[in-house]
């Protein structure tokens, strides 16, 4: 069964149809990429799935249940984590603390127990710290655990953000341009990380402009243009799809390919 199913999803901003009746399904344990020119509605699509924007019409189904209309924190608690195109770190907190906040959803000790540091919450606090350190280690930034997150290099901040998203123990991870602003080596590294995350059993949906990354790691690709889905296929087929070449390279070049 598909983990995530988007059906006839639409979003209107006034007269602008940002997302227009888009449907696709995401199989559990796969990596799917959403590509398209600037303004195609990719980030809007993410915002609709994560509940950051209200849906105009259509459905988002997660494990068969409709989740559109849920509040973003409720969507997060269902196991859908996301990262942002422009990194959103918690300023004034260390890399480790940033990741620990992500463990919030997983913490069992109640509000009062945590406030008064009851024994149960103290051992849980240790657990949270340990687990968060493991995640930083997994992403290769454990050395910077005690550094203030906003003072880290851009690529490292992205890794912290990824670790924070993983701390929610999501079943679905939404990555909004994970390679934006990264150099070629960092991009290759993030590609390896995403594959590793998929191999841990986490389904990944990503928006990305870096075509070599997308072609390398995706199992399937959805192409959006002006809010509409114009293609959905495996990377090798997408590369030869005349429709896709047309929107990326323009009308005339398409004939020559």
């Amino acid at each position: 069964m598909a983990l995530l199913r988007v059906e006839q999803l639409s979003k209107k901003f006034g007269g602008l149809q940002a997302v227009d009746s888009v449907s696709f399904a995401l199989q559990e344990g796969s990596i799917k990429a959403v590509i398209g020119p600037n303004g195609a509605g990719k980030t809007t699509l993410f915002n609709l799935i994560s509940g950051t924007l209200p849906v105009s019409s259509g459905e988002v189904r997660f494990r068969g249940h409709a989740i559109q209309g849920l509040r973003p924190y409720q969507v997060a608690r269902l196991g859908i984590a996301r990262t942002f195109q422009n990194i959103k770190m918690f300023a004034g907190m260390t890399a480790l603390e940033n990741v620990m906040v992500g463990r919030h959803v997983q913490s069992k000790a109640g509000f009062l127990a945590s406030m008064f540091r009851l024994p149960g919450s103290r051992s849980e606090e240790r657990q949270i710290r340990l687990k968060s350190l493991e995640l930083l280690d997994l992403l290769g930034i454990a050395d910077h655990a005690e550094t203030e997150a906003t003072s880290l290099a851009f690529g490292q901040q992205r890794a912290v953000e990824l670790a924070r998203a993983l701390a929610l123990e999501p079943t679905l991870l939404l990555l909004d341009e994970p390679a934006a602003g990264l150099n070629i080596y960092e991009t290759a590294e993030i590609g390896r990380l995403i594959t590793k995350i998929r191999d841990m059993g986490i389904t990944v949906l990503l928006v990305e402009h870096d075509m070599s990354l997308v072609m390398d790691i995706s199992d399937e690709i959805v192409v959006l243009s002006f809010g509409q889905k114009i293609a959905e296929d495996v990377p090798t087929k997408i590369q030869r799809n005349p429709e896709v070449i047309k929107i990326y390279l323009g009308e005339e070049t398409a004939g020559q390919v």
Binding site: Y73, K88, G92, M93, V105
Partner: peptide
């Protein structure tokens, strides 16, 4: 920590599942 997270970046805090 969650309160500090809210103060630092509300959007990111919400998406970490914080009400």
């Amino acid at each position: 920590r969650e309160m500090r997270a809210c103060a630092a970046n509300r959007t990111a805090a919400i998406l970490c599942g914080i009400d």
